[in-house]
């Protein structure tokens, strides 16, 4: 599988290692939450990055402050109708303050890709031969947002009331190209 990240299809050099398999010494790997909780110390002692693959029914809060020690967290979309990972992603970003790479794996439909990015997912796994044109186009299908999410985009309410938004965002002026375009 390849990765759609930063607007392009990239090779994926990460590997998920099952709970019973041996951990390679110098290769980036993700492991289950269970394995991370059991072997976190030794996993961090390696010379390669480590990440965690969260199952759909695992609470991200179980990682606690460990999120700051991880280079990658994967959340799963086992089928398009299962939207739990959207909430897991938001908890990782907004509540736990996770700043590393957050990857969506599983069934990644172009029509859900925008929502994934809004929830803080910044890379997704796709087949190597997949055309990404549709995915990139999907990101541009909307230009205004009603809800605050994990992508930091200004909401419609903030654009309607810039003074409030300035206060909320710590005084940084809320005037962007998008505001200018809308008020033009």
């Amino acid at each position: 599988m390849a990765l759609l990240q930063h607007g392009a299809l990239q090779p994926n050099n990460w590997r998920f290692v099952g709970d019973d398999a041996a951990i390679p010494v110098d290769e980036p790997v993700t492991v289950s939450l269970k394995r991370w909780q059991a072997e976190g110390e030794s996993l961090r002692g390696r010379n390669a990055p480590v990440g965690v693959r969260l199952k759909n029914d695992e609470a991200p809060q179980a990682l606690g402050q460990d999120v700051h020690r991880l280079s990658l967290i994967e959340v799963e979309f086992p089928k398009f109708t299962d939207g739990r990972a959207f909430s897991q992603a938001r908890i990782l970003r907004d509540k736990l303050g996770y700043k590393g790479e957050l990857r969506g794996i599983g069934t990644i439909l172009r029509d859900q890709y925008l929502y994934m990015t809004r929830c803080g997912i910044d890379s997704v796994e796709l087949p190597e031969d997949k055309s990404i044109d549709g995915y990139l186009a999907a990101l541009k299908e909307f230009s205004a947002w009603y809800q605050p999410a994990s992508d930091g985009r200004l909401t419609v309410i903030e654009l309607r009331h810039p003074a409030n938004a300035n206060a909320r965002r710590g005084g940084a002026p809320v005037v962007t190209a998008s505001v200018a375009a809308h008020s033009a």
């Binding site: 939207g83 959207f86 009603y146």
Partner: peptide, 13 residues
């Protein structure tokens, strides 16, 4: 209505 429209987290409940 506005908040729920295209809510990125709650569109696949």
């Amino acid at each position: 209505r506005q908040w729920s429209t295209f809510h990125p987290e709650f569109s696949y409940l």
